[in-house]
Design a protein around this nucleic acid. Structure first.
Length: 739
DNA sequence: GAGCACTGC
């Protein structure tokens, strides 16, 4: 470990990284206070260099340096590079840990990891006693896990004397962010010092278009506009590749078709500023694309050909393409938002934030100066685009988060120090759901079951079903289903109608192989058929199944099985017995996790949900139960999709008797009481008062049947029908545009 | 009668 080896910048570039000039001051700043905010644009070297400086300064003598990243690939590639720069073998002194891949040893001193991994570590060791420094990187991205870690570290180490008691070395916390919101971060961490490192990126000139105004938003056909602008760039700008931002697979394929058609009609050999642009290489890019196809994006185009990549937001942070000089920004993104009023996750197209627009523009300035063409106008920028993207913690279901916090001893989850607090009703909804799952009791305390549940990297409903099945001794049927439901969509639905027909037929056939009336059983049988087939990847191709998704389902299932085995060795693991038929047992176990997702047959083909909102829903055409509704009364479903109708997807029939005892639980909890419980420890007297009130209320709502009638009357589907109305309006406008 | 962005444990 010679000092000189590490103290020189190892970049092959002649110019040292900007951070190099601040080395000694930076190390001093870390030593001087518990919290430090470091800010610097991409390319300043903070992610790779700071841990090396701290290592050299002796921070690893009594603990590790841990650096979190929001993405797996980033954690792995950065660790590789740092190991190389320090002259160590990866996995020894410098290592990384991500799910399914732990490349560290006990002696690892500098450890890169995903934020989710560190959160898991905190659950096992809340004081992070192994670390001398924890660095949270990319904090400006506001990922759910990073936000929670930030709150936890603040809560624990705001009182460093107390928190560092018994530690060999006081813990240092460094929070790294691109330039935005640094004052806010510093204020959050008790006005801690901020260290600014200049960046090393090239200027990007941005211009606004005229196509999209605030009143038009997504209905204007921005796809067409984006295509037009991209072609303009192609025919009038100097050499350099183009990156176009759109929102989804469908749009991207449409845009590529249009570009292809129009680029063909362009007279080849365009004379642009004395350079010859011969043609355009059009490449789509989105997450569910096969990986080898994704790789093509990175190859330089043939001589004289301009590359035009049409991508989702995947190109904003996850993938970096070299040679991009021009950005065409649609101004929209597809985002999953949780709606607590109806208890649904709704995937919708929304305008991006100003900070996100800057991020997109920045993609053109990585290797040289660039240009960014925004298709929307200045008015749209000012009136429709928020300053910053709403952080994930404010637009996601918090059930799992609240359980995690409670297990970490954070009783008052409402007044937890969030950098940005979620709305109280999101938290109340989470508390209610945890209570329904028996994960917390009426006093808001974690139950034994809750302690088991937090161990699983799954949505709490899935975990509940897995634990139920395990207590009945049949985890083998539930683990694969839970795994299949927690990975990305496994069904391929191609764009071309002929292939579509074939894919649909294949999927339907897989459904009937498993009995024909249970989508969960279909998932189980796909898992088993593929696993036992001789050539699983060929089997997937034949059946229009995503092999990549299925592979990850296999790994998830293995992981879940290991966790379960470990937990079953505990003496208090629940054991129950059942002597009905297996098919029924399977569905009953699912109900334990999904009794909130139960619907009863209503007028026509519609079903009415029992979740307290009484929304009208329809079975999705991809379900095996579709068009077999006649004999159905009660069904249970996994997820909801809002498009032309409100659809439930992944469905199976159930019997009312199975959920009869669970349904009252949907109505008995008064969330406001629960929130008071969450705020403070209640006395026995208060508790008794509350329980009396609850009992009286239960008497009033004598049966679930009655509650059901009430619900059907309430017909409280306002938000859903709003969303549906917007969708129909958009569709209509789109149609009128095309005719 | 079909409209799924991206992460992460």
């Amino acid at each position: 470990m010679s000092k000189s080896r590490r103290s020189e910048p190892k970049e092959s570039d002649l110019e040292p990284l900007p951070i190099y000039h601040h080395k000694s001051k930076l190390v001093r700043a870390v030593k001087d206070s518990t919290f430090l905010v470091v800010t610097g644009e991409t390319g300043c070297g903070k992610t790779t260099q700071l841990p090396q400086y701290l290592h050299e300064a002796g921070f690893c003598k009594k603990g590790k340096i841990g650096i979190t990243q929001p993405r797996r690939v980033a954690a792995i590639t950065v660790a590789q590079r740092v190991a190389q720069e320090m002259g160590y073998a990866l996995g020894r002194e410098v290592g990384y840990q991500v799910r399914f891949d732990d490349c560290t040893t006990e002696d690892t001193e500098v450890k890169y990891m995903t934020d989710g991994c560190l959160l898991r570590e905190v659950l096992a060791d809340p004081g992070l006693s192994q670390y001398s420094v924890v660095i949270l990187d990319e904090v400006h991205e506001r990922s759910l896990n990073t936000d929670i870690l930030l709150g936890l570290l603040k809560k624990v180490f705001s009182n460093p004397d107390k928190a560092n008691k018994g530690r060999r070395l006081p813990l240092k916390v460094v929070v790294m962010s691109a330039t935005m919101e640094t004052e806010k971060l510093s204020a959050f961490l008790g006005n801690c010092p901020v260290f600014v490192i200049p960046g090393r990126i090239f200027p990007v000139k941005c211009s606004f278009g005229s196509a999209v105004g605030p009143k038009e938003t997504e209905s204007t056909g921005y796809v067409k506009e984006v295509v037009k602008v991209a072609l303009d760039v192609h025919t009038s700008e100097m050499a350099g590749d183009i990156l176009v931002f759109l929102t989804g697979q469908n749009e991207i394929e449409r845009a590529c078709d249009m570009l292809y058609e129009k680029a063909e009609t362009i007279d080849y050999r365009y004379d642009v500023h004395d350079r010859t642009v011969e043609g355009l290489l059009i490449l789509p890019l989105y997450g569910s694309m096969p990986t080898d196809q994704q790789r093509q994006i990175f190859q330089p185009p043939p001589r004289g050909i301009r590359k035009c990549v049409v991508a989702t937001n995947i190109a904003a942070t996850s993938l970096t393409i070299n040679g991009i000089k021009y950005i065409v920004d649609s101004g929209f993104v597809k985002q999953l938002n949780h709606n607590s009023r109806v208890g649904l996750d709704i995937l919708e197209v929304v305008p991006i934030s100003k900070s996100e627009a800057e991020q997109r523009a920045g993609r053109a300035g990585r290797t040289s100066a660039g240009k960014c063409f925004r298709i929307y106008n200045k008015e749209f920028w000012e009136k429709c685009m928020p300053e910053y993207t709403i952080p994930e913690i404010q637009r996601t279901s918090l059930t799992a988060v609240v359980l995690t916090l409670k297990c970490l001893g954070v009783h008052d989850v409402i007044r937890f120090p969030y950098l940005d607090s979620p709305e109280e009703r999101f938290i109340l909804e989470a508390l209610k759901q945890l209570y329904q799952f028996d994960a917390i009791d009426r006093r808001g305390r974690v139950t034994k079951l809750g302690e088991l549940m937090v161990e699983f990297p799954l949505h709490p409903g899935l975990t509940r079903a897995v634990l139920k099945a395990s207590s009945y001794g049949c985890p083998d049927v539930m683990l694969p289903v839970a795994a299949m439901l927690s990975v990305e969509n496994i069904f391929i639905r191609p764009g071309h109608p002929e292939n579509q027909k074939e894919a649909d037929q294949r999927h339907r056939a897989l459904g009937s192989k498993s009995g024909g009336m249970n989508d969960f059983a279909t998932l189980l049988s796909i898992f088993q058929l593929c696993k036992s087939s001789e050539k699983p990847s060929a089997w997937c191709k034949e059946n229009w199944i995503h092999w990549r998704a299925l592979k990850s389902a296999f790994s998830v299932e293995t992981q879940l099985r290991e966790i379960l085995l470990r937990l079953q060795q505990r003496s208090d693991f629940p054991v129950e017995s059942f002597d009905g038929n297996k098919n029924e047992l399977f569905r009953r176990c699912l109900c334990a996790g999904y009794f909130t997702n139960v619907a009863r047959r209503s007028i026509g083909k519609a079903f009415c949900t029992m979740d307290g909102h009484g929304s009208m829903v329809h079975i999705h055409p991809s379900s095996a139960l579709f068009e077999n509704e006649k004999d159905l009364d009660w069904v249970m479903f996994h997820d909801v999709l809002v498009t032309s109708k409100v659809y439930i997807r992944t469905v199976c029939p159930i019997r009312y008797e199975w959920v009869k005892d669970l349904l009252p639980k949907l109505h008995e909890v008064d969330v406001y009481e629960l929130s008071n419980v969450a705020r403070e420890e209640v006395t026995d007297e208060e508790m008794a008062k509350w329980e009396n009130k609850e009992a009286a209320k239960r008497q009033q709502e004598a049966s679930a049947e009655e509650a059901l009638k009430k619900l059907e009357k309430r017909n409280d589907e306002a938000s859903v029908s709003d969303a549906r109305a917007r969708y129909l309006q958009r569709k209509q406008q789109k149609q009128s545009k095309t005719t």
